[in-house]
Design a protein around this nucleic acid. Sequence first.
DNA 1: AAAATACATATTGTCTACATTAAACTTTTA
DNA 2: TAAAAGTTTAATGTAGACAATATGTATTTT
Lengths: 240, 240
Amino acid sequence: MDTDTRSKKTQCIEDLRRKVLTEVLEPGVYLDETELADIYGISRPPLREVLRQLAGEGYVVLHENRGAQVAPMTHKTLRNFFVAAPMIYAATTRLAAEHATPAQVVKLKECQWAFRQAIKSGDAAERALGNERFHSIIGEMADNEFLMPSLRRLLIDHTRIGMTFYNPRKLHLAPQRELAADQHDEFIALIETGDADAAADLAVAHWELSRAQIESFVTPESINIPLGRAPGAAETRGAS
Amino acid sequence: MDTDTRSKKTQCIEDLRRKVLTEVLEPGVYLDETELADIYGISRPPLREVLRQLAGEGYVVLHENRGAQVAPMTHKTLRNFFVAAPMIYAATTRLAAEHATPAQVVKLKECQWAFRQAIKSGDAAERALGNERFHSIIGEMADNEFLMPSLRRLLIDHTRIGMTFYNPRKLHLAPQRELAADQHDEFIALIETGDADAAADLAVAHWELSRAQIESFVTPESINIPLGRAPGAAETRGAS
DNA sequence: AAAATACATATTGTCTACATTAAACTTTTA
DNA sequence: TAAAAGTTTAATGTAGACAATATGTATTTT
C-alpha cells in the first residue's frame, strides 16, 4: 500500500491538472463543484479554492455564478500558441543551459528515461505527460519567475494537443516520436555542457517538429469545441 | 454618491492588487485572513478564494498553514526581471501594433490623458498605477493568452519598483518622467499606424529608460526585504 | 542559568447549513 | 400554436462554527 502523504486538496489539484492535460476533461467542459467535492472527499469551500488556483494557472476559466470551465481551445488559441511558443521555449531553454544545477540535470535524465519507456510501451497520456514533465523541468532550470507563467500556459495546450501526436495507434508517427525523444537527449547534453546558443537553437528545432505535426493533423473543426454547457449530457460533466 | 455595482469580493481583489502594486502592502509582508475578511466585509472562505486567485496572478505567495505573503522582491527577482522584461515587452508591443482595435486605441488614449495628469500633479501611486494601466492595455491589444501571464507578472514588479521613479519629491527625475510620457504618445501613434517593427523598437527603448532608472537607484539593500513574519509588528500586517 | 518540554494562544483549514442566482419547466395568453 | 411570463429546481456564493496546526510562553529539569 502506498501511504499518500499529500493532502486531499493537493491530490485534487494534481488529479484535475492531469485530467485536463490528458483531455479526460475536454476543453470547454463545465465542472460541477458538488460532484468534484464528493469525488475528492472534501467540501465545496476548499474545492472552490482549488478551482481558483487552477484558474490562475490557466487550466480552467471561471465564470461568475456559472462555475468553472476547462480552458477552451479555439482557433485563435492555436494561432497565439504558434506565436508565443518558439520565443518562450527558446528563451527558457537558453536560460536552463546557463543555470541548470547538477541535481536538476539528474532529475531531467530520470525524466527522460521514463519518457523513453513511455514512447516504447506507454499510452498517449503517459507520453504526453512525460513530455510535459521534461519541458517543465527545463523551465525550472531556467529559474525565472517571469517567464515560467507563460511557459506553464504553453505546456498546458501543448500537452493537450500532443495527445494526438502521442497516440500509439498512430503508427506512422512513431519515427517522429523517436526523433522527439532523440532531441530530448540532445537537450540534456547541451544543458549539461552549458551550451546556451545551441540549446536555444535546438529548442526552436524541437518546436518546428511539433509545429509541423500540429499543422498536419489539427483542423479547425477538431479544436472548435462547443463552449456552452451541454444540457443534460452527464458524461461531459465531472471528473469520473 | 457612487453606487458601486462591483461585488464586495471584486472590490477586495482590486483593492488588494492596488495595495500590493503601490507598496502600501510591502513585499514580504504576511496577511491576516481574519483581519482582511473584516476589512472587506466578507467571510473568510471567499477571502481565501481571493488570496488563491491573487497567488495565481503573482501578487502573493501562499505558504501552507502559514498564510499568504505579499510577493517578495529579492536580488534574484530583479535579475530575472531584467532578463525577461525586454523580450516580453517587445513581443507584446509588436503584437499590439498588429492587432489593436480602434476601440482599444481610444481606451489607450484616455489612459494616456490620465497618465499625463498624474505626471503633472498626481502622487507616486497614481502615476505608477497609470503607467501600469497603460502597458496593461497594450497587453490586451496583443491579445495573446500565452504572453499575458508573463506580462502581468512583469508589470507587478515594474510598478512596485516604479513607485520610486514616480515619487514627486524626486524632482531631478521630472525630465525622465516627461520622456516616459512622451514615449507613451509615440506608442499610441505607432500602434494606431500599425508599425509593428517601430513599436517593438520603441518598447525596447522605453524599457532601457526604465532599466537605467532602476539600476541607478535600486541597491541590493533596499530590495532585500525581510521575509519572515515581523513578530508583533501590527502595522506590517493587514491592509489598514 | 540554559535547554527542553509541556501548555496556551492565535491563526489557518474545513465543514455544514443557508442565501442567492441562473437555468429549466410549466402555465398562461395572444 | 407560439411566445411570454411565472414557477420550480438546481447550481453557485456565503456565513458562522468547529478542528487542526503552528507559534509563543511558561514551566520544569539538568
